[in-house]
């Protein structure tokens, strides 16, 4: 194959990883700042102007922390678990398009990493294997709180995956394609959130549960499980769990934006394709702000409430929504 194509792919993949990792760092700062403002505090403001160097300081602190492995932990899996958590969070963004194509150094460069005809299925596959890290961390720690946290996490993620999968369906049905790029392009006339407000709502709720964020952070509830599956983790291994959570927040926001908010589309995007990534970034920012807002507002669900919400409310609603959408599509055309 053409070596310049390989080079282009490698550069794009490296760039995507770089964006995700810096994005993660500044999402933590964003969260601390926004939560602070909502609680009429100031938030981190000592490291650099407006606390802009705070993520760097946090990173350095975590690197120099002591790495600790509990005596009767399963060493191999204990070390493997954070890695297994982190990898899906990084690779899930590979199929999200950032724009159409631009001319760079006299070469047409597409602004997406991969446009596969099973893009949505890829996202669901990666999302479904992201449970392993949490479950394995809980089991390998050899600690009953960790194990309970891990088991709760797996039950929660499997339960919410169903409703999430059903919330993926309406955009697929409307666009008639499994490729995220086709779905985004099909939204040129109107964003799907207008046609499918219920599905968008279900997607938002279940995706928050899928990344174990408040108010669905039961696997890591401090008060009852002393931080759940990552109780025994410290230093960089803890940092990996932390990174995975925030990277997943970014990924989920990007996927939501692509499915329901028109992805990289926006005014004047057809004339200036460079605007595409900026529009997508703005929409990702909206999604991140929403999740932080949720965390600052809602108390944590009880475990049985969480399961009841997922199975008795969201799942039937999503199912009904798919049936109605299919019916309308069959009638209208």
């Amino acid at each position: 194959m053409d070596w310049t194509l390989w080079l282009e792919w490698t550069i794009k993949a490296a760039l995507l990883l770089f964006i995700l990792l810096t994005g993660f760092a500044y999402t933590t700062l964003l969260e601390r700042k926004v939560v602070a403002w909502m609680q009429t505090r100031i938030g981190p403001n000592r490291a650099g102007p407006w606390g802009l160097l705070q993520p760097l300081a946090d990173g350095i602190k975590l690197i120099f922390k002591e790495e600790f492995i509990p005596a009767h932990a399963d060493k191999v899996l204990f070390i493997l678990a954070p890695v297994v958590t982190m990898v899906p969070a990084l690779i899930i963004m590979a199929v999200v398009p950032w724009g159409r194509e631009v001319v760079l150094f006299g070469r047409r460069v597409t602004l997406y990493l991969a446009d596969v005809n099973v893009g949505i299925l890829y996202i669901m596959a990666i999302a479904s294997i992201s449970v392993y890290g949490v479950v394995l961390a809980g089991w390998a720690s050899n600690n009953k709180y960790s194990l309970l946290g891990g088991l709760r996490a797996s039950a929660q993620m499997i339960s919410y995956e169903l409703a999430l999968g059903l919330a993926f369906l309406p955009p697929i049905m409307l666009a008639g394609s499994l490729s995220l790029r086709d779905i985004v392009e099909a939204q040129r006339s109107m964003w799907y959130v207008v046609y499918q407000p219920l599905a968008a709502f279900i997607f938002l709720i279940t995706s928050v549960a899928e990344v174990n964020r408040a108010p669905f952070d039961i696997p890591e509830a401090e008060q009852e499980l002393t931080a759940g599956y990552h109780t025994e983790y410290s230093g960089m291994k803890f940092a990996l769990f932390f990174m995975a959570e925030y990277t997943k927040m970014i990924a989920v926001s990007a996927i939501f934006a692509s499915l329901y908010l028109g992805g990289y589309l926006g005014p004047f995007e057809s004339q200036f394709p460079w605007l595409g990534p900026l529009y997508l970034a703005a929409k990702i920012f909206l999604g991140l702000f929403f999740m932080i807002w949720l965390r600052a507002t809602f108390p944590r669900f009880r475990y049985d409430q969480l399961m009841a919400l997922g199975w008795k409310n969201l799942f039937p609603l999503a199912l009904l929504n798919v049936v109605v959408t299919a019916g309308v599509l069959a009638l209208v055309g």
Partner: peptide, 26 residues
């Protein structure tokens, strides 16, 4: 067979084996 590859991961690796792990740990 990209479709099957994704179904294989979603159903087998993502659901069936998680259930196995769940039962083993439980």
């Amino acid at each position: 067979a990209p479709f099957l590859a994704m179904v294989q991961i979603t159903v087998y690796a993502g659901a069936v084996m998680v259930l196995f792990l769940f039962v083993v740990m439980l």
